[in-house]
Amino acid sequence: MTDKPIAEMSFEEAMAALEGVVTQLERGDVALEQSIALYERGAKLKAHCADKLRVAEEKVEMIRAQEGRATGTAPAEGL
């Protein structure tokens, strides 16, 4: 586990840290208090990743709008 604050992590760093948390929790060999702390960290990492994805999606939508292309999501059937 890194000491880097979650707010300073890139999406990739946060995902890797979240995968590490999930692995530790799935093993089930950590004490209850540590499990709670890991779960809390995992929730924060998940929220950070979701926020990073939201920001990226907004940037893509802005680019699409600037190009005069339709914005929003498109049904997969048309691809």
Rank of each mutant, 00 (worst) to 15 (best):
M1G: 14
T2M: 12
T2N: 09
T2I: 07
D3C: 07
D3K: 10
P5T: 05
I6M: 03
I6P: 00
A7W: 08
A7Y: 10
A7C: 07
E8M: 12
E8W: 06
E8V: 05
E8A: 15
M9P: 00
M9Q: 10
M9W: 06
S10T: 15
S10V: 05
F11I: 07
F11Y: 12
E12R: 12
E12P: 01
A14C: 06
M15W: 07
M15T: 08
L18T: 01
E19F: 04
G20D: 13
G20A: 05
V22K: 15
V22C: 04
Q24R: 15
Q24P: 00
Q24F: 04
L25G: 02
E26D: 15
E26W: 03
E26N: 15
R27W: 04
R27M: 08
G28C: 03
D29W: 05
D29A: 09
V30P: 01
V30F: 07
V30Q: 09
V30Y: 10
V30L: 10
V30D: 11
A31K: 09
L32T: 13
E33I: 11
E33P: 01
E33G: 05
E33V: 11
Q34V: 14
Q34D: 14
S35P: 00
S35H: 08
S35D: 13
I36D: 11
A37D: 09
A37N: 12
A37Y: 04
L38K: 02
Y39D: 13
Y39A: 14
E40Y: 06
E40K: 13
R41F: 01
R41S: 09
R41Y: 03
G42M: 02
G42I: 04
A43Q: 13
A43H: 07
K44N: 12
L45C: 02
K46H: 11
A47H: 07
A47G: 08
A47L: 09
H48V: 02
C49T: 13
A50N: 12
L53S: 07
R54Y: 08
V55I: 14
V55Q: 11
V55R: 11
A56C: 05
E57C: 06
E57N: 10
E57L: 11
E58W: 03
K59D: 11
K59M: 08
V60L: 12
E61W: 10
E61N: 15
M62I: 09
M62W: 03
M62N: 12
I63R: 11
I63K: 09
R64Q: 11
R64S: 07
A65N: 13
A65E: 13
A65R: 15
G68Y: 12
G68A: 07
G68I: 06
A70W: 02
A70C: 03
G72C: 03
A74D: 02
A74G: 02
P75W: 00
P75V: 00
A76M: 01
E77Y: 00
E77V: 00
L79S: 01
L79M: 07
